[in-house]
Amino acid sequence: MQILEEIKISDNGFVFNALTGESFSLNPIGLEIIKMIAANSDFDEIRKTILDKYDVDDLSFEKDFYEFSTMLKHYQLTQQNNPLNFV
C-alpha cells in the first residue's frame, strides 16, 4: 500500500488531497501510521512499532489497521490498481 504523491500530510494530522481538493483529519495514532505507510513501512513493521509503544494487543490492532487502511483506500488516498491494466 502506497500513499499517493499528491497527498499532503501535515504534522498536526491534517491531510489534503491535491487531486480532488478534499481534506481529512487524523487522530494522533492515525497520523503516526499514515506517516509510516508513506515511508513505505510494511504491516509487520508498523505492527511492531505500535505494539511496542501502545497498550494494545495484536489482534485488536490488526482489526483496527485493516479498517484504517480500508478507509484510506475508500477515500482514494492510496495508489489503486489501474482497473484497465488487467492484461
Partner: peptide
C-alpha cells in the same frame, strides 16, 4: 510503561 491506545481514525472534513 506503554501509552494508551486509541484506534487509528481518518475522517473527511466536510
Amino acid at each position: 510503561e506503554k501509552l494508551n491506545y486509541e484506534k487509528p481514525i481518518i475522517s473527511k472534513i466536510t
